[in-house]
Simulated scan of single mutants.
Amino acid sequence: MARIVRFHEHGGPEVLRIENINLPGPARGEVQIRVKALGLNRAEALMRSGMYIETPALPSGLGLEAAGIVAAVGADVAGFTPGDAVSVVPPLSMARWPAYGEVATFPVELVVKHPPSLDFEVAAAVWMQYLTAYGALIDIAKLRPDDIVVITAASSSVGLAAIQIANRVGATPVAVTRTLTKKKFLLASGAAHVIASAQEDLEARLKAIAGPCGVRVVLDPIGGPIVAPLTAAMGCGGILVEFGGLSTEPTPFPLFTVLKKSLTLRGYLVHEIIGDAVRLQAAKAFILEGLAQGSLRPVIARTFAFDEIVEAHRFLESNEQYGKIVVTV
């Protein structure tokens, strides 16, 4: 028996329950982990509330990121033995392979021996944010040392990961946040410039920073009206990678701006990287090297105990965090 978080109906954080479940051992090609820490993601709040791209049968588990110790391995698993310290690349289905629990099982190809310098809390906060930012900036946009890259929702875990990746390749990260409250934090986190979109003229500031060449790369999880000033400040041949839809307002398509500048507006899901073995291997190598060198380091906003999973989800939806929320088990 193991304690597992499940929900029997869609709703707010209060629908989450910790239940004692009798779990089977790992199947062929799977690794079972005794979980020490979990990384929380907005995708989990969306699935819990019934608004995610995956609609599970109820009751359902959830969770995409975990770190812990290998408890058992299934048949045909090589390279892992009980006792190994590991972390987990987010699976394509969190209903099929949920992470929230004292014990969790994952396909072997998603299990990673993380650098020994990382403790479990930090290791649980690695893969979603860095894979998302890597896929958008490196795999898709081919970020270059001379690029100016605009990162909206910059104080989120993905935003902070994107700032670190931009600095690692020598690009200039411009952090966009709603108010100046987070300016000092973002500058200390590696942003070259910080713009408060609710207090400053976003288009004018971006044009002043980028100069006549304009911005080549934009990473945005928001959508909505912000797309207009972002694209207005982009240069010819620029690319805007959209990986979320946080705005509740309609997203206008800036047709004439796109035509005039030959812009690319690209929708992106991290599943593109996770589901492609070759691209995932390249991403793992980039991220593990950055972690080992110290150029990539997850920022932990706050840590909760496993019994506080409801409170952790409330904090997740508060938009108050700077970085990643972690739950210890």
Rank of each mutant, 00 (worst) to 15 (best):
G29P: 05
L269R: 13
A198Q: 14
R314E: 14
M47V: 11
I33Q: 02
K36V: 04
Q293V: 01
R279I: 03
V217M: 07
E308N: 09
K261S: 12
T257P: 00
L131K: 02
I148Q: 00
A196I: 11
P56M: 06
M128E: 14
A133T: 08
G294L: 07
T179W: 05
P24F: 09
L263N: 05
P212N: 12
A233K: 09
G223W: 01
G12V: 02
R96Y: 01
L137A: 13
R96G: 00
G275A: 15
F306S: 04
M51L: 14
G83D: 10
V299A: 12
L280S: 06
E121K: 15
R205Y: 02
V215T: 09
A166T: 07
I140A: 12
G290M: 07
A72G: 05
L92N: 08
G29N: 11
E109Q: 13
L291G: 06
G83Q: 04
L240G: 08
G25S: 11
G159E: 09
I300H: 10
A136T: 07
G224R: 00
A37Q: 04
C236T: 15
A233C: 12
V169T: 13
L110E: 09
P250E: 15
T179D: 08
P173R: 03
G39D: 05
L219P: 07
E317L: 14
R34E: 14
T251I: 09
L64G: 12
G238D: 02
T231F: 08
P116Y: 03
R279N: 04
L58F: 13
R3N: 14
V278E: 15
S60W: 05
G237D: 09
P145C: 03
T172Q: 11
L16Q: 10
G79I: 08
T105K: 02
E200M: 10
I325V: 14
A153C: 10
L110K: 03
A312I: 02
V73G: 03
V122T: 15
E320R: 15
P221R: 05
T179H: 12
P145S: 14
S60H: 04
S262M: 05
V86Q: 06
R28K: 15
A124C: 04
G11F: 11
R266V: 09
A277M: 05
S49M: 14
I138K: 03
E102W: 09
A191Q: 06
I273A: 03
I148T: 13
P13D: 10
G11Q: 12
P91W: 08
V31Q: 06
I151G: 05
D119I: 07
K36D: 02
G135N: 09
C213P: 02
E272M: 12
I300C: 12
I33R: 01
D76F: 09
D220F: 06
T248I: 08
V227T: 13
L46E: 08
L219E: 09
